[in-house]
Simulated scan of single mutants.
Amino acid sequence: MLVREEFNRERIDNLIREANRHGSFHALSHEEREATRHAFLSNIVKDDGLWVFGYGSLLWNPAFHFTEWQPARLFGFRRRFCLQASIGRGSPEKPGLMLALDHGGSCKGRAFHIAPEKIDSETDILWMREMVSGAYNARHIHIQLPDRKVKGLTFVINRSHPRYVSNIGMEETVQLLASGEGHLGTCRDYLNNTIAHLDEMNVQDRYLHEIQQKMRKLDHQNDIA
């Protein structure tokens, strides 16, 4: 579990240095990252706070302060394993994949509400969590809550980023998730945690469940072998 105290500039610098020891790692400078945050915040009305849409690890480990969460749906984007992971839940020896929001379809998750007076501090945490490498773009979006639609923030894949995987088959996805592991843990745990928390919300994601079933089949085959 990540805690908010771990999201600081010193830790980010250490992560980038470690990643660069194993090859070139594309990362934003602190100044570049902050510029994207301020650009996003300059275009929102803060009086009502800020809703943040979570679809992956934010479901169980947001690490930022929020006043409430609600089940939510985002149209125009879908959850997909399309981001190569060489740090975090992957490594040069055991590369993996991470979820991102890619174009098309819709996605169910959770919307977290940040109080107006906490927007600056909590988006600082969010940007250090999500925008280290520039693999995501911060997007202004409309989020469908159970009783209304609200404006908010989410992070979608940056299709021009070198770690974006545009076309990967199911079998390769399963293989990478079955073996991917880094200092934050395994891709397998990441997948299972995401599914478990969606199941708690009675959200069925056929894509994720198909991956999980194929991974169990692979495990069974390996046990027999």
Rank of each mutant, 00 (worst) to 15 (best):
138 A>S: 15
17 R>N: 10
51 W>S: 07
194 T>S: 04
152 G>Y: 02
158 N>S: 06
179 S>V: 11
192 N>M: 08
21 R>G: 02
222 N>R: 15
122 E>S: 06
96 G>A: 11
153 L>V: 12
105 G>A: 06
1 M>Y: 08
23 G>D: 09
9 R>S: 10
12 I>N: 01
143 I>L: 07
108 K>N: 10
71 P>H: 07
59 L>N: 03
198 L>A: 01
160 S>V: 06
218 L>Q: 15
199 D>S: 13
123 T>D: 02
84 Q>L: 13
76 G>D: 09
181 E>P: 01
44 I>S: 00
212 Q>Y: 03
131 M>D: 00
11 R>H: 11
187 C>A: 15
123 T>K: 00
192 N>F: 01
135 A>T: 09
98 M>T: 12
10 E>G: 06
41 L>F: 10
95 P>E: 04
110 R>C: 06
26 H>D: 02
183 H>V: 13
217 K>D: 15
134 G>Y: 04
23 G>L: 04
79 R>T: 08
57 S>M: 04
91 S>I: 14
161 H>C: 04
28 L>H: 06
141 I>W: 10
112 F>R: 09
29 S>V: 08
96 G>Y: 07
30 H>Y: 10
45 V>A: 13
123 T>V: 08
84 Q>T: 05
28 L>A: 03
223 D>P: 04
200 E>N: 12
11 R>S: 12
153 L>T: 06
199 D>H: 15
11 R>I: 00
20 N>H: 12
163 R>V: 02
46 K>M: 11
76 G>F: 03
77 F>A: 07
19 A>E: 04
29 S>C: 06
92 P>H: 02
120 D>G: 05
172 E>W: 04
119 I>N: 05
123 T>F: 00
52 V>E: 00
115 A>F: 03
137 N>L: 14
221 Q>M: 11
129 R>Y: 02
159 R>H: 11
163 R>T: 10
214 K>T: 07
219 D>L: 10
